[in-house]
Design a protein around this nucleic acid. Structure first.
Lengths: 192, 192
DNA sequence: CGGATACCATACGGATGAGTATGGATCGCC
DNA sequence: GGCGATCCATACTCATCCGTATGGTATCCG
């Protein structure tokens, strides 16, 4: 339960390293994932790390897999439980909009698409979410080709907003404005 | 006119380094901007570089400024010359869609928002473009608050598409599909 | 309580990349 | 054609970071 970087006078497990890695990725990006820096942050040295992992890449892969599986059951799982297809899309928009915290890792990975290890993960995750959006738009009444393009447009808007808002700090927007923006998205992108 | 990396047996200027830097950024990202690598590509050594620039950061800043000013007069300049306000937005969408080449640097800088040097540049450029979009939507008949939100949505979709398509290779899309997507965007985002 | 195993520290080697020092080559120009 | 300014090569230093080697300490268990 201790998310911060307090000394934590217990011994570490591989899971601890993976969680710390994700935490660091979310805040400083994949490029900042250095083993000595992580070790300092955890209050140990490299000697500990190389007992749990064979290499730095191994840690990255493990952290990415952990993140992917978490998103699989938490993010998508909850949303699929919205019964009414016509209420599903607006509900989805509003939930995603107000749970921006779990999207920090996604935004960070978006900036790390030059690292070969993250590409397949992001490809799977994005593909899965776009397929989900496509069927949701079909259930909302759009014919197949339009549903696909609308899903592309929606997901691109989501990704772009993450980039502009998180890492660039644009647009300068406050809570009420943000809510109005979300409602504008709903009105514009979701068929009546 | 010689864009490739042929030996080029002439002496170099600061401009040559800046252009080569932008070229490298567009293809491999800001992180790959190393002076020895650039020197090899230009057929010289570091000794040359440190005569033209005081540091690596100086080169990055110079290249970014050059790119910003180029975009200022080329990208925005041409578009403002579309007289009819009602034809301006669809025209803008179609032009941007079919000139994706100049957007490679923008896509690369989008992934480099953790480097402090690129943030102010991207903030200025994005702000400027969104203001342009906002007034275009107003001229197309939208009231002010809606025009602002529609501009945010449009620009987010643009940024997200760059990220998904360029660096991730998603969605897998061919020419006809892409044209259909652009027309779908126009129909969805631009008021009748 | 004593050893086997799990976990960690310290010290090192090697690679990479930024920046400096300095001398050599080449160009403009009188 | 010679001389000063411009441009570049070579050879270093220094810092960072991955990975290895090896010995030390804690913990579990019979």
């Amino acid at each position: 339960m201790n998310v911060s970087s307090k000394p934590e006078r217990t011994r570490l497990s591989a899971e601890d390293w993976e969680l710390a890695a994700l935490h660091l990725i979310a805040e400083q990006g994949v490029g900042a994932l250095a083993v000595e820096a992580l070790a300092r942050q955890l209050g140990v040295t490299k000697g500990s790390f190389y007992w749990h992992f064979r290499t730095r890449e191994a840690l990255l892969n493990a952290a990415l897999e952990r993140w992917e599986q978490y998103g699989e059951r938490e993010v998508l799982g909850q949303i699929e439980q919205i019964a009414d297809p016509r209420k599903r899309l607006p509900e989805l928009f509003r939930r995603v909009a107000h749970e921006l915290q779990p999207h920090r890792v996604y935004a960070a990975l978006l900036k790390a698409l030059d690292h070969p290890q993250v590409v397949p993960v992001m490809a799977r995750v994005s593909q899965r979410r776009m397929e989900f959006l496509t069927t949701a738009y079909r259930e909302a009444g759009l014919p197949a080709p339009q549903a696909l393009n609308r899903a592309r447009l929606t997901y691109a808007a989501y990704v772009g907003f993450l980039q502009l808002n998180f890492t660039l700090g644009l647009p300068r927007i406050n809570h009420e404005e943000f809510d109005a923006y979300v409602e504008h998205m709903i009105a514009t992108l979701i068929p009546a």
